[in-house]
């Protein structure tokens, strides 16, 4: 990145690289959680920069709910090949088939909550002692309290009231066997920072983030895309609109927004003018006031 260009982005990039190198130095078996969304794509980009000219020293882990947009998987496989990283896929369907978890009942079953079990099982299987995630503190109020190095006990649980103080740039990754850490190198980035950086660096992004025509249904204020995983309720019908996604996750709970932003510049302008958070389109966060805190405590991303 040019030296005088966006000093705040340079600062954030340098901080994230510092955290990633600290993870590589302090842990034995680090993995990088890859969802296919922009934050995890950014994470892969930063990891490449942190260790160049060497290869990224993290394996990628994708927790697959089975409810994917096909574009996400194509993009994932291309990126993995380009980076030359190892990809491990943890399948929620496999967890269901093995009886580890049970599918929600009802017309709009979300596998979001189920992911936690698959995630913890996958980390245990890989003997991972740290999982790097693309969580940002500006996303949600429970995440605002996250550390860069966040401790998880033997059951994968987060204890928000008893976190290790994180002072200066001194990260304490000491752990006992069976415990692991989550590391959040892009904690201090905002949605706007992410898009500005992606534009400045020319990072490739999946087509889902750009405006396109798609069949959707509006339910509880959220636009859900037509897919084999979403079924219509009585009185609903598919309706083709020009939309884009602000976040990409499980197709059953990731809402689209009506938008004509088809370039990075237009997306940045839209984010600047937006009066709704990006998670505003996530029906999983709307369940209770402390939905995110409760999910994070048991081991969610």
């Amino acid at each position: 990145m040019p030296k005088d260009f966006h000093p705040h982005l340079r600062h954030l990039e340098s901080e994230s690289i510092f955290v990633m190198r600290e993870v590589a130095a302090q842990f034995e078996r680090p993995v990088l959680l890859f969802s296919g969304g922009k934050d995890s794509i950014l994470m892969v980009h930063l990891a490449r920069k942190a260790f160049a000219p060497a290869r990224v020293p993290f394996a990628l882990v994708h927790i697959d709910t089975g409810h994917n947009f096909p574009e996400t998987l194509e993009f994932r496989d291309r990126l993995v090949a380009e980076v030359g990283a190892t990809l491990h896929v943890g399948s929620v369907q496999a967890s269901i088939d093995a009886g580890r978890v049970h599918e929600e009942a009802g017309p709009n079953p979300s596998r979001n909550g189920l992911q936690t079990v698959t995630l913890l099982d996958t980390l245990a299987e890989l003997k991972a002692d740290v999982a790097l995630g693309g969580g940002r503190r500006d996303e949600e109020k429970a995440r605002a309290k996250e550390r860069f190095f966040s401790h998880r006990d033997r059951f994968g649980q987060w204890d928000p009231k008893n976190q290790r103080p994180e002072l200066w740039n001194l990260f304490n990754g000491r752990r006992n066997p069976g415990e692991h850490f989550r590391a959040f190198p892009i904690s201090n980035w905002t949605e706007m920072d992410v898009w500005q950086y992606i534009a400045a660096e020319g990072v490739a992004m999946p087509s889902l983030y750009f405006a396109h025509r798609r069949e959707v249904v509006e339910r509880d204020g959220v636009l859900l895309a037509r897919s084999e995983f979403n079924t219509l309720l009585d009185g609903e019908q598919w309706d083709e609109r020009t939309i884009r996604f602000r976040t990409i996750g499980d197709a059953t709970c990731t809402g689209a927004t009506e938008s004509t932003a088809s370039s990075l510049e237009e997306i940045i302008a839209e984010v600047a003018a937006s009066r709704v958070t990006e998670r505003g389109g996530r029906s999983d966060d709307k369940r209770t006031e402390a939905a995110m805190e409760d999910r994070k405590k048991v081991g969610y991303f």
């Binding site: 503190r137 500006d138 109020k141 605002a144 905002t190």
Partner: peptide, 24 residues
């Protein structure tokens, strides 16, 4: 309630932990 993000904080009406906020 915007800044006191943890359940315990909202219940007790106090700030317990460090929370990070962003604006530009």
């Amino acid at each position: 309630l915007l800044t006191d993000g943890l359940r315990a904080e909202r219940e007790q009406n106090i700030t317990i932990d460090v929370a990070y906020r962003y604006f530009a």
